[in-house]
Amino acid sequence: MTRTLLRIDASARTDGSVSRELADRVVNRLAPTQVIRRDLADSLPQIDAAWIGANFTAAEARTEDQRAALALSDTLIAEIEAADTLLIALPIYNFGVPTALKTWVDHVARAGVTFRYSEDGPEGLLRGKRAIVVVASGGTEVGGPIDFATPWLRHVLGFIGITDVQVVTADRLAIDPDASRAKAEEQIEKLAA
């Protein structure tokens, strides 16, 4: 049962977005107790040299400026930690993820916080969570040879410990929009609350 859901909207479009529309349907289907919203259309700042310097400074040794540089990243990670389920509304842009979603990943993939390196390789630290990725694309078939978005996002989520990932697909909307939407709606109806 989903108690707290973190909804991440990655579409640059706030009106007429299929990924947002389908994410609304997922929220209605799951009926979580609480929804935390993170709309990436509002844009996140790119990580920069100050952010990297702060990130690679031990927490207890960080200056006030370094803590300020990581404040947004800390907030984004706290949103994930608070959620049982992540819902990512993902449009495919030019075969990949929107830059806003890549920037979100840059903020939340932090060594020692959301993953760590061990003798056996990287280990995700955000275990026990579920992710539902609602994908909308005009012509890129999810799982096809030119889909670089969903395999990348699955890898990133697994890297930080989220391995229970379900994908709802409304792909090839420019080719057969009715069939594409119907397929996605059927997948949403099968999602377990």
Rank of each mutant, 00 (worst) to 15 (best):
T4D: 02
T4H: 01
T4A: 05
R7N: 09
R7S: 06
S11W: 03
A12I: 14
R13N: 07
T14E: 15
D15F: 14
G16C: 09
G16A: 11
S19D: 04
E21M: 15
A23S: 15
V26N: 08
N28S: 15
P32T: 09
T33Y: 03
Q34I: 12
I36S: 14
I36D: 01
R38K: 13
R38L: 14
D39S: 06
L40I: 15
A41S: 10
A41P: 00
L44E: 12
P45I: 06
Q46W: 11
A49Y: 12
A50S: 12
W51K: 12
A54N: 04
N55W: 12
T57L: 09
T57G: 00
A59R: 07
A59M: 14
E60K: 01
E60H: 08
R62A: 10
R62C: 08
T63L: 04
E64N: 07
D65H: 15
D65G: 09
Q66L: 08
Q66N: 05
L70V: 08
T75L: 11
L76Y: 06
L76C: 05
L76D: 04
I77W: 00
A78G: 11
E79V: 06
I80V: 13
E81Y: 05
A83I: 06
A83M: 09
D84W: 09
D84C: 00
D84Q: 01
L86G: 07
I88V: 15
I88S: 06
A89L: 02
L90R: 02
L90T: 09
P91V: 05
Y93N: 13
Y93M: 11
N94V: 07
N94D: 07
F95I: 04
G96S: 15
P98A: 03
T99Q: 14
A100F: 09
A100E: 11
L101D: 01
W104F: 15
W104M: 06
W104E: 06
V105C: 14
V108D: 02
R110H: 09
R110K: 10
G112I: 05
V113N: 06
D120L: 13
G121Q: 05
E123A: 13
L125N: 08
L126H: 04
L126F: 05
R127I: 12
G128I: 04
K129T: 03
R130W: 01
G139D: 06
G139I: 07
G139L: 12
T140W: 12
E141K: 13
E141P: 08
G143V: 13
F148K: 02
F148R: 07
L153V: 11
R154W: 09
L157A: 04
L157S: 05
L157W: 04
G158T: 02
I162R: 09
T163L: 01
T163Y: 00
D164K: 10
Q166H: 14
Q166R: 01
V167R: 00
A170W: 03
D171K: 10
R172M: 13
A174I: 10
A174N: 11
I175P: 11
D176N: 08
P177K: 15
S180A: 15
S180C: 01
K183D: 05
K183H: 13
A184N: 03
A184P: 00
E185I: 04
E185K: 04
Q187V: 06
I188H: 02
I188Y: 02
E189R: 03
K190G: 13
K190A: 15
L191Q: 02
